[in-house]
Amino acid sequence: MARGFQLSSELIAGVVVGAAIGWGFDKLLSTSPFGLIVFFLLGFVAGVVNVVRSARMTPGNR
């Protein structure tokens, strides 16, 4: 369970932060909804990058 949380928190953090940045971007520059779409996807990508990285280097895998 600990390991599952570890990896899922990476992905969720990615998506949530990406969406939050996108939402803020739209709010500031009134480009709705493109900022949200772009940043949501980028956040998802960054989340996946982090999942792969943490799966490679955290102790549970050694």
Partner: peptide, 24 residues
């Protein structure tokens, strides 16, 4: 851009991991 975003994500996942584990 993705690297910068993933750097910014670190404190979020770092804190959520500990918090979610203990809470759950």
């Amino acid at each position: 851009f993705i690297e910068i975003l993933s750097f910014l994500l670190r404190p979020v996942s770092h804190s959520v991991r500990l918090f979610a584990n203990m809470l759950a």
